[in-house]
Amino acid sequence: MAIRVAGALESKPKKGVVDPIESLGRTILRARVLEDKLGNLYRAGRIVGGVYLGKGQEALSGAGGLALRKGDIFAPLIRDMAGRLGFGEPMVDALRAYLGSRLGPMKGRDGNIHRGDLTRGILPMISHLGAMLSTVAGVLVAKRMKGEKGRVGLTCAGDGATSTGSFHEGLNLAAVERLPLVVVVADNGYAYSTSRDRQFACEDLVDRAKGYGVEGHGVDGTDPMACWRVLHHAVERAREGAGPQLVVGKLLRLCGHGEHDDGSYVEKKMKSSERGRDCLKVMEEGMKKRGQEKEWQGWREEAQREVEEAVAKVSAEPVPDPFEEDWRATQSAGMAEVMVAS
């Protein structure tokens, strides 16, 4: 069930209301421009570790991040630059993680997509897929126990992650506890190189919602305004106490698994299908129809300036120093064991 908001891009926004087009448009442009830059930096050998991009997934991801409020919890996966920016992660933090600055939230101890900032409500993912569902559920249980009301947790997954036991256990637990958890699945056709027909046998992942006893929402992940509407609806349903929400966006990853991968295994018919549309182009077309081509171009130029400034700033920052690192994995007093073997 794909929800489409045909014509939404043609109507002008009302005064005094957040313009979803500007909000989402700027967010997905910032993500795309930043990720294009990251790809270039990777090829220039400037990146520490791998680069994993979310091209083609910006609308679904960004709409999720933008649907949240301050005080909510966001646990992104690897293709959620747009969601992170939409939720308020500073662009410099992304670059600090990729360029290895010691000023980043992970201080060089972890990097790239594994960054997070618990003080901002951004949980740093671990690489093991599905693990963040139960973790966000735990944060929400804690908030409930503390009497904090009206908070929502949103976490992202891909079609591959839905095959893990963790995904199942986490969603089931959240459903049993009726937690305000939104799980956004980007069904992007491939888990690394494995196509969805080798990943699961059901027709549509959103059909699983009923089995878990949660509300399900399917959306065309290439249609930005449909993503905006569905994600806002799902987040509000969770906020008003309707329990976990499963959102499944159909789209295509428009890049390799990481920048080391050319994605040559992606079938041509997938690329030319509706799934293969680039959500940024869809948005740009809509802006043209509204006569807002100049605004779109302006947002793009602003994003380019922001990215260049952030890269310049972070490039001048100090890198981690092994002699200043305290090499302690626990916080307990008296725990500093000297491991002779090391």
């Binding site: 139960s134 973790t135 559920a137 944060v139 804690a142 126990m145 503390k146 986490g170 049993v176």
Partner: peptide, 24 residues
């Protein structure tokens, strides 16, 4: 404050990690 869990050891520990991050 003493809650039955589903038979989901992975999610039980994951839930505790999240709750601990949130100060519990």
């Amino acid at each position: 404050r003493v809650m039955d869990s589903p038979i989901s050891e992975d999610a039980m520990v994951g839930m505790a990690v999240g709750a601990a991050m949130e100060g519990m």
